[in-house]
């Protein structure tokens, strides 16, 4: 008997729940839609919306804090030291700019819009905007260059910084040689291998200053500080790469030592 009971009960329940469901859908047939007609109407993007990054180059001091914070390495910055005669002005936060930013590329094909690059910026010049419609058919076009210098200017600045560096290196080498000579003179009870680095003549265009040199002053940091966060990306952009001889891997790995901060996560990433 009970199975007959459940048989009819199931049929009844089936019908009833179907009708209940039909009631719900019928009610929604007459409720206004919640969707909007996208290109005509748009959802307001909240103030904090994290979309395309923008860099206000007027304020950028080329410190590469954002590039180091980036977890995917989509920001590529190269700087060239300005000559003492040049005045680059100050940022809106009152910081003096010392470096020519010769490359500032953000590859939005790689960017994950996490926003980690925004807080470290000392001058608040990198921030996220509300632009989110910037699809491209060509991936290379997503590599945005933010520099204000023209490529020629950027090349010139790099060249000039390199020349200054060469000069400084030559001066340094000469000073070192002089010091060594002096040392050799004072200690004539000679040990033949007392000189750690034979003061050779300045080599033509060493892009990285040889590290073991006892630099006389700390201010003589590397004139060309270069962080290649992503080697691929930098090739695609209009970069002054061609003027600079490509550096071997291990030298690139040493490069962080010459940076202002020594914890570059990307230097040895590849």
């Amino acid at each position: 008997m009970s199975s007959v009971d459940t048989y009819f009960k199931n049929i009844g329940k089936g019908f009833w729940t179907v009708l209940l469901g039909m009631k719900v859908t019928m009610r929604h047939l007459f409720t206004p839609a919640v969707t909007i007609q996208y290109p005509d109407a748009r959802m307001p993007i909240p103030e904090r919306g994290r979309n395309r990054l923008y860099v206000n180059m007027d304020d950028c001091i080329g410190c590469n804090q954002c590039g180091m914070a980036c977890p995917v390495g989509c920001i590529t910055i190269e700087t060239a030291k300005s000559l003492p005669t040049e005045d680059l002005g100050v940022t809106s936060t009152g910081q003096k700019k010392r470096l020519w930013v010769t490359q500032f590329d953000i590859d939005f094909a790689k960017c994950c819009y996490c926003g980690l690059c925004v807080p470290p910026c000392p001058t608040e010049c990198i921030y996220m905007t509300d632009v989110f419609e910037f699809s491209e058919y060509d991936r290379d076009k997503l590599n945005y260059s933010f520099i204000t210098l023209t490529p020629e200017e950027a090349a010139q600045k790099t060249e000039q910084a390199k020349a200054a560096e060469k000069e400084a290196a030559a001066k340094k080498a000469a000073a070192a040689a002089a010091a060594a000579q002096k040392a050799a003179q004072t200690q004539n009870a000679a040990q033949p291998n007392a000189q750690p680095n034979p003061p050779s003549a300045p080599k033509p265009a060493p892009s990285v200053a040889p590290t073991p040199q006892p630099a006389p002053a700390g201010a003589e940091a590397a004139p060309v500080s270069s962080v290649t966060a992503d080697p691929q990306g930098s090739k695609t952009a209009s970069s002054p790469e061609n003027v600079q001889p490509p550096r071997p891997q291990e030298q690139a790995a040493q490069a962080p030592q010459e940076l202002k901060t020594n914890d570059n996560p990307k230097g040895s990433a590849d």
């Binding site: 929604h28 047939l29 409720t31 839609a33 919640v34 969707t35 007609q37």
Partner: peptide, 13 residues
């Protein structure tokens, strides 16, 4: 259209 309106959408427009 009917399915769209039942689902609080508007369907093709």
């Amino acid at each position: 259209k009917i399915s769209a309106h039942m689902q609080d959408r508007v369907g093709p427009m």
